[in-house]
Design a protein around this nucleic acid. Structure first.
Lengths: 212, 212
DNA sequence: TGTACATCAGTGAACGCGCGTTCACTGATGTAC
DNA sequence: TGTACATCAGTGAACGCGCGTTCACTGATGTAC
């Protein structure tokens, strides 16, 4: 456990600093919030010089975007798993299954979830490629769930978001956000997921007749 | 328009610095985000010494909480107006009316809306009294809308949030949040409000039979 | 297998920035008499 | 109405902090021959 501070050969080359930075960033993010994530602080935590992170990331945002991208990967995976698990069941089951997955991801790493959506990273023109790719993939899964289609015909680059497909997404996103921000009072994650199930089951999103 | 920088008597006493700080803070908040709101920056913008704000606010958060409290006042007012406007109509009309009011407030000052909910100000033990009061009042209005009751029997201090009353709130909050964060792509506020109406009208929140 | 050398992945001192905070001070204002 | 004085609402210089960034440097690693 104890770290030999005066270790003779403290590995001049870290070996995997880039990944270590991303991992440490996600830890600090979750523990102390996004403002606590600084390049200098990460370097300190990892025992490297404060200039070392600059070797791997142009700036703080580039690092954070990596953390956010990881979040979208997990979101996508969980949504796909939920779709798989509820395959063949009636539509509301798919909604409940994927909705709970969505909120589950949010509650497991609430700060990262906020970073993913609220940081404004996505909207930037210079949004890093990986974040763009991974978020689009997760979005495509969401649209697939919402539309009840295979999703193969949905181009993430050009999808238009329409009502009422939007309803379920907005509902679970709202529940996740309100819960994370403490607006629902103190509530355990498991209770929260039960609540999500209840709300989703009590909600009927009517698909309006096709307009000609 | 031009400010006489070398004005002879530049009002040693500002006269209304406290209010001016709150107003300027809300302007800078909306233009450049919450991180851009600093006591020094506000002092600069108002042409007072950088130490002056400290005379009125213990710290930056106290000032921001004032801005957030103003936001809850506006939210409460708009919700009350929406309730009034749809009084006597069927339940779904009240939901649509107040839901659009909710999102309207969010879109009018998106950064302030994020501050109100996402800043963590509310959850703090040392949450300023005024913010606590005003947010509770807005919450009470929301609960009143959700429960379809007069709300006179709801104590803001102890209200419990249950499904499915939560559904409408979560739905509109999710729509507002996703829109503000750009997750719905570029969309005009008026189109957004139309979308909110559509989604709400397509949504039926079933009130389950009372459990014994 | 050994050696030379380029490149990789760092170090650590230095710099400038904007921030909040403190502190001795001071001009403007209100009030008592 | 005039004066004395307390209080209010600031000023502005100074300090320390943590941050990102730069820069000359250097130890470790990989590759060509």
């Amino acid at each position: 456990m104890s770290r030999p501070l005066n270790k003779k050969s403290p590995a001049y080359h870290h070996g995997d600093l880039r990944n270590a930075l991303v991992h440490e960033a996600s830890v600090i993010l979750e523990q102390h919030g996004v403002d606590a994530v600084t390049l200098r602080g990460l370097a300190r935590a990892l025992g490297v010089s404060h200039a070392a992170p600059g070797y791997h990331f142009a700036d703080r945002e580039e690092l954070l975007s990596e953390v956010a991208a990881d979040g979208f990967v997990e979101l996508w995976q969980e949504l796909e798993a939920a779709i798989e698990a509820s395959a063949g069941q009636e539509a509301v089951r798919v909604q409940v299954s994927s909705g709970m997955a969505y909120v589950g991801v949010a509650l497991r790493r609430p700060q990262r979830f906020k970073l993913m959506f609220s940081s404004g990273l996505l909207g930037r023109d210079d949004c890093p490629e990986r974040l763009r790719t991974e978020s689009s993939r997760a979005y495509a899964a969401l649209m697939r769930i919402a539309h009840g289609r295979s999703g193969l015909d949905i181009d993430p680059a050009t999808y238009r978001i329409d009502q009422p497909e939007l309803g379920t997404w907005a509902l679970v996103h709202g529940l996740a956000t309100l819960s994370i921000d403490g607006a629902l009072g103190p509530i355990e994650p498991t209770d929260m997921l039960t609540l999500v199930r209840s709300v989703l089951e009590a909600t009927r999103l009517e698909k309006p007749a096709d307009v000609c």
